[in-house]
Design a protein around this nucleic acid. Sequence first.
DNA 1: AAACGGACCAACCGCTCACAG
DNA 2: ACTGTGAGCGGTTGGTCCGTT
Length: 290
Amino acid sequence: MGRHSCCLKEKLRKGLWSPEEDEKLYNHITRFGVGCWSAVPKQAGLQRCGKSCRLRWINYLRPDLKRGHFSQQEEDLIISLHEVLGNRWSQIAAQLPGRTDNEIKNLWNSCLKKKLRQRGIDPNTHKPLSEIQEQDEKNLEMVAWEPQSKKLRSQSMSELGQSVVNNLSYGIGTDNASNDRFLRKPVFDPFPLFEIQAGESSINSSNRNSSMEFQTSDVLGNAVFGWDAEGKLESLFQYQHNGMKSQELKPSSWQEPQQNVQISEDYSSFPLTSLSEDLTDANFDLFEQI
DNA sequence: AAACGGACCAACCGCTCACAG
DNA sequence: ACTGTGAGCGGTTGGTCCGTT
């Protein structure tokens, strides 16, 4: 397979994005939407490849990104989903509105794997380490649980992940300390300093992270997730369907505050559909039993 | 104060898949 | 059926921050 033609061009910038570049890309996408990524750099006046632009948009500029620390519920959900889906970060991310696959992948590699080991759980198999050690002692090869078949890589697993979420439920982090990471982001803020009418409260863009959390109403689910490695898949389907699914949400309202910007693109059609849904009006489920 | 190392994060690389011609 | 291209995904790398020595 050939490389991306855009990547073959010379004089393309690499590395960290400057605020000016962010602004150009953001303005372009908000005005014209996402069409052909390979055409975006030229149209937006950027010396980047389309791939880089796409990544920057998805992982950083997209207005519906949640940012901030992961809540305990989110971490638990990621672990649960990983147990079922393996390293399919995009599918896991699809179940966590406002989170990117890259973000989840980083969290997993830097934090969650370690936490699981500390709990005595093997992060690859999600089985107790002692059990694995016993098997090692018996010279049985312990193959990391990683569904590789084409069937498992297809829609069925995505549906399975959705099933997990529908029944697991989770909550949006509400820790006020979660803003500190957001505040470490580069200078450019794709949200101009306008005031967002958030129900009864009015906040500026520097607090938009918390605004999403503020507006989030919680819908309690009745999920109970078992950590028993045995019969995981079966048990996953046994949960009561009680959570409100994210697709019931309204179209993205992040556009609304930008009164001077005409949006020509329906962002609900973005590839990461579940992430493009309106978080500000989202009703997220909670782990009631945790 | 400087050096070091770990944690975290953004971005790149290489691959596969889907699709149009 | 084959080929080229773009999109998307997961693994990996490199930079920065921060705590410890």
